[in-house]
Design a protein around this nucleic acid. Structure first.
Length: 677
RNA sequence: GCCGGGAUGGCGGAACGGUAGACGCAGUAGACUCAAAAUCUACCGGGGCAACCCGUGCGGGUUCGAAUCCCGCUCCCGGCACCA
């Protein structure tokens, strides 16, 4: 990855977690807090190792061929945050070029000022002597503010004039340069052109500081805009005005009819003032961690040759196990001479080993490839095994991984593909997210809240099978919800009944034909339903279906039937379907029933369509869509017979006596609807 | 603000446009027991003696027929959010 330019070191503003004493990737900062520690992160300028995930931004936006939840695809799409627009160069009066990114180059003529992020490298140079004190104070204040405070959108706009001016390249206007913390140094170029007439934020800023507002897009069906009196920004499309040769051009990106944006970009490119540009919210993946526990970054520092990659034959670099953990807050690797001392692969002189280790998400980004043959010391992955076993068909996990593990894994898989290690670019073909079981109070379980349900306690009381089966039964697997103690007893009873059903005595009786047919219908019907449920991850209805089968079998059970081959068939089906739900119980009953081998390697049961057919069925009769009768009819009833039987029913006839039948609807084997007036 | 997902009995939840409430919990009655627990049986959306009427967040619509499809709302949950 280093050779391909996909791993590199650069100095940048990073998220520093003061509790874990390490930096974190953007994905690991939730609402301004460290994902693990919960501590407010600080911004620090540090040199760190990164993976160039942004090189794959567009490919990561392509989910074609993947059967993934819409929610996850949306979250990743938002996280990557692609936006199309233009990069335009403004020139400051100091002669410095200032790059800005805009999605609305068609509003360039309305740029009446510029705003730089407080951290922008040109701030100090652009600031005039009379404004220096105010600017320094503002920059200092911004640097101390937490990310949370800075990003709160209810804040009034703040900012300071630098005293410097720039020239609007499209019309030569002299416009003031301000700094404000609503412009982020980490997005785009860290500087914006402000078009207050057509951008809400710029409008609020302009009104707060008395800056010019010049409308350059006149929307349809609205009074002509007046910058002096407008009460809010007008962000939509319309016809360009106050824009020189472009006056009268319709704005838009083509889909709304106008093509102003494309025409302005072409015009800028002709004159060398700017060019079309795509910007992403996604940042490169910061993988350095100032921790001992992590995979060492195999890079070396040589005083003579600079940063060098460790020789391939020396890989992998492993963590020393004889480190001294001291309460310094620093990685013990920094105090370990044997680890630190290395040889420069370029000049053969002494080199110092990198002591940062990799984010552990690095490891989870490719483990399923490595796990295919973890003992192979000669190569990272074995091609014949990855070809045979990957991509993963179905992958499950919590939604909390939507933009962490799942995004990193997709990136890593694409990199491995491009390095020729594997032949595919997506790790997981089908993804399903399980819901989270919350505490009884409906809140996320936490020790602090005291609402934690400990599965070990439940296992001790009810057994592992009962707890497992209840978790499958409690509700839709993908939804989650509050934990509820009330239902588990029902699952325990069900499992006890299954035990009694197969291991208990039977009353005397006969295996008459009707009984056998009913038994087979119940068992084969359950196989059909449960198979479909498992395929669709609907485990709650699968368990319910097995409960129904147990109820049916318990009712039918007698000594004669138990001796019949259909009973053994039904028991075998039941236990194989129960195996993923109550594995211990199913295995025990499997052996007690005289089966050989393990139920867990037995094949999944298949059903016989013929066994599902009943000789009689219930026909619902409606008059004008309201149920008026339920009739038992032979299974092979014809449409004419069904309608005749419906009309003959006394309760139905009552509604027909003084009415005319307008229409007769027949749903085979299910329903007759007589439309009368 | 933008984007997802959701709303059905006392509770968890079922339901290819075709019997709303499968399955389970809780509850009621009965059997067994000296009694209780466990177990088993029956009942179990609301109203009504009954015929029947009303019922899937709210208001419309499509349809012979809507929890399900369409339009417009309300509320709840999740994600993103000063991203230029």
């Amino acid at each position: 990855m280093g050779e391909k330019g996909l791993a590199y070191r650069k100095e940048s503003y990073v998220n520093w977690d003061p509790v874990d004493q390490t930096v974190l990737a953007n994905e690991q900062v939730i609402d301004g807090r460290g994902e693990r520690s919960g501590a407010l992160v600080e911004r620090r300028l540090m040199p760190q190792w990164h993976f160039k995930i942004t090189a794959y931004a567009d490919e990561l936006l392509d989910f074609s061929g993947l059967d993934w939840p819409e929610r996850v695809k949306t979250m990743q799409t938002n996280w990557i945050g692609r936006s199309e627009g233009a990069e335009v160069t403004f020139e400051a009066e100091t002669g410095d070029p200032i790059e800005v990114f805009t999605t609305r180059p068609d509003t360039l003529w309305g740029a009446t000022f510029m705003v730089l992020a407080p951290e922008h490298p040109l701030v100090a140079k652009l600031t005039s002597e009379s404004q220096r004190a105010a600017v320094d104070a503002y920059v200092e204040q911004a640097s101390r503010m937490s990310e949370i405070d800075r990003q709160s959108d209810t804040r009034e706009k703040t900012g300071v004039f630098t005293g410097g001016y720039a020239t609007n390249p499209v019309n030569g206007a002299r416009i003031p340069i301000w700094i404000a913390d609503y412009v982020l140094v980490s997005y785009g170029s860290g500087a914006i052109m402000a078009v207050p007439a057509h951008d809400e934020r710029d409008f609020a800023f302009a009104r707060a500081f008395g800056l010019n507002v010049i409308p350059v897009v006149q929307p349809d069906g609205v009074e002509p805009l007046d910058g002096a009196t407008m009460s809010e920004a007008v962000p939509g499309d319309g016809v360009m005005i106050n824009s020189g040769a472009f006056d009268g051009t319709r704005t838009g990106k083509g889909e709304t009819g106008g093509d102003g944006i494309a025409r302005v970009i072409a015009w800028l490119e002709e004159r060398g003032l700017g060019r079309g540009k795509v910007t992403y919210r996604l940042r490169d993946w910061l993988i350095s961690r100032q921790r001992y526990w992590g995979t060492p970054i195999p890079m070396l520092y040589c005083d003579a040759c600079g940063i060098q990659a460790e020789r391939v034959e020396n890989l992998p670099v492993v963590l020393p196990e004889d480190v001294a953990f001291m309460p310094t807050g620093e990685s013990p690797l920094k105090q370990h001479p044997d680890f630190l001392e290395a040889t420069c692969p370029s000049c053969g002189g002494p080199a110092r080993r990198e002591t940062d280790t990799m984010d552990t998400f690095m490891d989870s980004s490719w483990y399923w490839f490595r796990y295919l043959d973890p003992s192979d010391e000669t190569q990272a992955v074995r091609r014949d095994l990855t070809d045979a076993w990957t991509p993963v068909n179905t992958y499950t996990g919590g939604i909390e991984h939507a933009i962490l593990h799942l995004l990193y894994s997709r990136f890593f898989t694409k990199v491995m593909r491009d390095l020729g290690l594997i032949d595919h670019g997506e790790p997981f073909e089908r993804l399903r997210n399980q819901g989270m079981i919350l505490g009884e109070d409906g809140e996320k379980m936490s020790k602090r809240r005291g609402n934690v349900v400990d599965p070990d306690d439940l296992v001790a009381k009810y057994g592992a099978d009962a707890v497992r089966a209840y978790l499958m039964f409690i509700g839709p697997w993908d939804q989650g919800g509050p934990w509820n103690y009330q239902g588990i007893e029902g699952v325990v009873r069900f499992l006890n009944r299954v035990w009694t059903l197969f291991d208990g005595p039977a009353e005397p009786g006969e295996a008459d034909e009707a009984r056998v047919a009913e038994l087979r219908r119940a068992a084969h019907g359950a196989v059909k339903e449960v198979s479909e449920d498992f395929e669709a991850f609907q485990f709650n209805t699968a368990v319910a279906e097995l409960m129904t089968l147990q109820n049916a079998m318990s009712k039918l059970k007698n000594a004669g039937l138990v001796a019949h081959p259909a009973w053994a068939e039904a028991r075998s089906m039941m236990l194989r379907m129960l195996a993923p739900i109550a594995p211990h119980l199913a295995e025990e009953l499997w052996h007690r029933g005289g089966e050989s081998g393990s139920v867990h390697v037995a094949s999944w049961p298949t059903f016989d369509e013929a066994a599902l057919v009943a000789d009689e069925l219930e026909l619902v009769v409606q008059v004008n869509g309201k149920v008026r009768a339920r009739l038992t009819v032979p299974a092979d009833v014809s449409e004419a017979q069904a309608i005749a039987a419906a009309k003959a029913d006394p309760n139905v006839a009552k509604y027909l006596s003084n009415a005319t039948i307008r229409r007769e609807i027949y749903v085979p084997g299910k329903l007759v609807n007589l439309v009368v007036s």
